[in-house]
Simulated scan of single mutants.
Amino acid sequence: MPLFSETSDVSVRPAVPGDELAIAQVQLAAWRDTHADVFGTALDDLDAEAISAGWHESITAPPGPGYRVLVALAGPQVVGFAAVAPVAAPEGEARGGVLVALEVTPTAQRGGHGSRLLAAVVDLLREDGADQLHTWVLDGDDARARFLRESGLGPDDVAREVVAGTLPDGTHRTVNEHRWSAGI
């Protein structure tokens, strides 16, 4: 029996201190690959070091129970991440969760990392007693919509407008997002 397999070691684990810069780099690479037409040159101004500080806080001092950051690994390398937060429910109803972020670096996409991350998020939400999951998708993000649809989520007719930056004339640039959800 050979010591090494022809496939790489892939896994998902909770993010730990030290993962934050890799998470920020994955996030920026994925956004630049997918959303350059929406955010334009504003993406060029984003700094991985500054973004990593926010991820460090999310990893080391989450705001409460149910807030989690997970990473997808190819061998020892972080190639993706997911962040999930709890959603309060009315008394007597099961809680839900919102998938705040799920990104895979462009060179590692279509390798199952996103599916593994989403499955891990769902498992954690179920352990917490949640029975639903939702997330937000930018208009025009066809790849994300396809991934979510193939994963069992669907749009639920809730939309919102989000400020995506400030234009040179001082006005705000906005984008539209639609909520996708599923029972888990």
Score class of each variant (00 low, 15 high):
L28S: 00
P17E: 03
R13A: 13
H35S: 12
F39D: 06
A22V: 07
F39C: 06
D33C: 15
G18K: 07
D19A: 09
D47I: 04
D19R: 01
G18H: 04
R32K: 10
V10Q: 12
L46E: 12
D45G: 08
W31M: 05
I23K: 06
D45P: 02
L46T: 01
V16F: 08
S8E: 15
P14L: 15
A42Q: 12
A36V: 11
Q25A: 06
G40A: 11
Q25R: 11
P17K: 03
S5D: 12
A22K: 04
F4K: 13
G18N: 11
V38Q: 09
D44R: 02
A24N: 01
A30W: 05
V16P: 04
V38C: 09
D44G: 01
A48T: 00
R32W: 06
Q27T: 05
F39E: 10
R32I: 03
V16E: 15
F4T: 14
L46S: 02
A36L: 10
D9G: 07
D33M: 11
V26I: 05
A36D: 10
D9I: 10
D9H: 12
G18R: 07
D44T: 00
V10H: 12
T7W: 10
V12N: 05
Q25K: 12
L46I: 09
V26C: 00
P17R: 07
A30G: 07
V10K: 14
V12E: 05
E6Q: 14
E20R: 02
L28I: 00
A29Q: 05
L3I: 01
Q25L: 10
G18F: 10
I23P: 04
L28K: 04
L3P: 07
D19F: 02
A48W: 02
S5T: 08
V38W: 14
T7A: 15
S8R: 11
A15T: 04
H35T: 11
T34R: 06
D44V: 00
A48Q: 03
A24Y: 01
R13Q: 15
H35Q: 13
A42D: 14
P17W: 04
T7V: 14
V26M: 05
E6P: 13
T41D: 15
P17N: 04
I23S: 04
S11I: 08
G40P: 01
S8L: 14
L21E: 09
A22D: 07
R32S: 09
A24I: 02
A29P: 01
L43D: 01
E20V: 00
D44E: 03
F4D: 13
A42S: 14
F4R: 12
D37P: 08
R13I: 09
G40W: 04
L21G: 14
L3V: 11
A30P: 05
A48S: 09
D37W: 11
L46V: 05
